Amino acid sequence: MAIDHSAPHTATTHTIPLGFLCGAGAGALWGLVFLAPEFVHDFTALQLAVGRYLVYGALASILIVPRWPDLKRHIHQRDWLALFWLSLFGNTLFFIFLSQAILLGGVALTALIIGFLPVAVTLIGSREKEALSLKALAPSLFFCLAGAISIGWQALTAPGSAQQSPLAVFYALAALASWTIYTVGNSRRIKQLRGVSLHDWNLLMGLATGAQAMALVPFAFMWGQPGHTTPQWETFVAVSAAVAIIASFSGNALWYQMSRLLPLTMTGQMILFETLFALIYGFLWDWRLPHSSELAAFFFLVLSVLTCLSAHRPKNVHRHATSSQQSAEI
């Protein structure tokens, strides 16, 4: 059934607990993506991205068939244009930029830069109507920055750490910009949907992303790529399908629900869950305990989310809205 919100969301109507749980769930599923390359060493990041999004697109195509007769009446040219750009920045380009940054500069440097995403989104979100002020969000932003720095500190200062490539910084910054554009644009777009449910939006995003993946097939598989054995292809297909279903389909569905429930100033903070879960999965994969700087990162990131939640408590939001209204009247 389509979800239609005839009135715009305000800070006092956001369902914070449910949105928080959806954001945490999305981060838990997205964090698994960082383990995917460990299973397919013989394939490039571009090949893994194309495989992932081809499966995502195929799954979306199958599931959207029974919905299409009703859905096509609500989808217009501007919606397809929005889907193209959002899927480009949020899926295709972001994954390619992120993979290149990790390849050239390592996980630490990439995580350090991507860790500033909540700050970028929160700064943009603070300009939204009835949004909390930067002063109210300052503690959360501080802990976010501290956590981002702590994430990369251990590897960046470890003996024998490789010289970081300037190109790695460029790709990491490009990934940061790409995901910021997507997060802000998608959060605003889905709150304007009429006659299109969040499930439908997820399927439509899959169609757009799958089409882009098909366009990249020649670059990923046909030009100058080494051959692979049958077992390697079987593993690649299995990993691509798993990542598509777990991260692209299920993770995105939770993220879209969260984006509709939470204000933009809080949406950015929820991406910290992906970082937290990625670190947890990494420790389990390496079968080791976290170092002191990694424990500090956990501590700061958890504090960032908790202080953000505290700032968005209904009484704080109501107080801010009343103060803004009084200032406007003066």
Rank of each mutant, 00 (worst) to 15 (best):
I3A: 12
H5F: 12
P8M: 13
T12I: 08
L18Y: 09
F20H: 13
L21F: 09
F34K: 13
D42T: 13
T44M: 10
A45G: 15
Q47H: 12
V50T: 01
V55P: 10
A60K: 04
L63G: 11
I64E: 03
P66A: 09
P69K: 08
L71Y: 00
L71H: 03
K72M: 07
Q77G: 09
T110R: 03
L117I: 11
R127C: 06
S140M: 02
L145N: 01
L145H: 00
L145A: 14
I149F: 01
L156M: 03
Q164C: 06
W179M: 15
I181H: 10
Y182E: 08
S187M: 10
L193V: 05
G195R: 03
V196C: 06
H199L: 12
H199A: 08
H199G: 07
M205T: 14
M205K: 06
A208V: 03
A208Y: 03
A211Y: 04
A211N: 08
A215C: 09
V217A: 14
F219Y: 14
F221L: 01
Q225W: 07
T230A: 15
A247I: 08
S248N: 08
L254G: 01
S259K: 05
L262V: 09
L262P: 12
T267C: 11
Q269W: 08
F273E: 01
F283V: 01
W287D: 10
R288G: 03
H291R: 10
T307S: 12
T307W: 02
S310A: 11
H312K: 04
H318D: 15
R319P: 13
